[in-house]
Simulated assay, not measured.
Amino acid sequence: MTRLVPHRHVHPSDIAFTPTVKALQSRNGSRDAYARMEEDHGWQTRLTPDVASFIEQQTSVFFATVSGEGQPYIQHRGGPPGFLRVLDDHSIAFADFAGNRQYITAGNLVDNPKAHLFLVDYAHRRRIKIWGEARVIDDDPALLAKLMPEDYKARGERVIVMTARAWDVNCPKHIPQRFEAADVAAALKERDERIAELEAQVAELKRLGAASAA
């Protein structure tokens, strides 16, 4: 089994671009472009207002952790817009809702704080990847109450706070365009109301035409 050896980070993207990854980039011809990216602007470490707004609009995300043995685990997290909360320009928090009581994510974070948050906006074909560390908070009922979405039928058990170390925005290639059912329903309702309005106008014009002909 390959032993995991931490490497020194010079650029924020080094959190993902390990020496092995960079070697593969060189072998496959993409290293020069990524080296220019690192020198010119690179990945950001601070959660900008635009990214914070994107995070808090999400209703479905994927949260990845790793066990003490190096086994990765990805868990779906969902809730109404705002269930993910940006506390400051480096911190993201959410209430851990009661579920199947396996506690894999919580257990992994005890052994290994490394975490990853993957967010996809299918409607606008945009995705953001966030690397960092996370911790479980079991003894802060005030923070848990603050993070619980209003009128949402779920029971919060604990809080998970993630400290973002780097983030990147992917291109929209290969992201299928999908829409939220509520947004589709609202658009159809607006269409039907407009059709009814136009039909009423046509009926009125017909009535007026018939009256003038008489």
Rank of each mutant, 00 (worst) to 15 (best):
F63R: 05
F63W: 07
A64W: 11
T65W: 11
T65V: 11
V66G: 03
V66N: 03
S67W: 13
E69V: 12
E69W: 01
G70W: 07
G70T: 00
I74M: 14
Q75V: 14
Q75W: 11
R77P: 08
R77V: 14
G78E: 02
P80C: 03
P81Y: 07
P81F: 02
G82S: 03
V86N: 02
V86L: 03
V86S: 05
V86D: 02
D88E: 03
D88S: 11
I92H: 05
F94E: 02
A95K: 01
A95P: 01
D96Y: 02
A98S: 14
G99A: 12
G99D: 01
R101V: 13
Q102E: 02
Y103L: 15
Y103C: 06
A106I: 12
N108E: 07
N108G: 06
V110F: 13
D111N: 15
K114C: 14
H116G: 14
L117K: 09
L117D: 04
F118T: 05
L119W: 11
L119F: 06
V120C: 05
D121L: 11
Y122D: 00
R125L: 07
R125I: 10
R127G: 01
G132Q: 10
A134N: 03
R135P: 03
R135T: 09
R135E: 10
I137Y: 08
D139I: 14
P141D: 10
L144T: 10
L144E: 12
A145C: 10
L147W: 13
M148Q: 13
P149S: 03
P149A: 04
P149D: 01
D151K: 14
A154T: 06
A154L: 06
G156T: 02
R158A: 09
V159C: 09
V159A: 08
V159P: 01
V161D: 03
V161E: 15
M162T: 03
M162F: 08
R165K: 07
V169C: 04
V169P: 00
C171I: 10
P172D: 06
I175C: 08
P176D: 03
Q177R: 07
Q177E: 05
R178P: 01
R178T: 09
R178K: 02
R178E: 03
F179R: 00
F179C: 00
A185E: 01
K189Y: 04
K189G: 06
E190Y: 01
R191L: 12
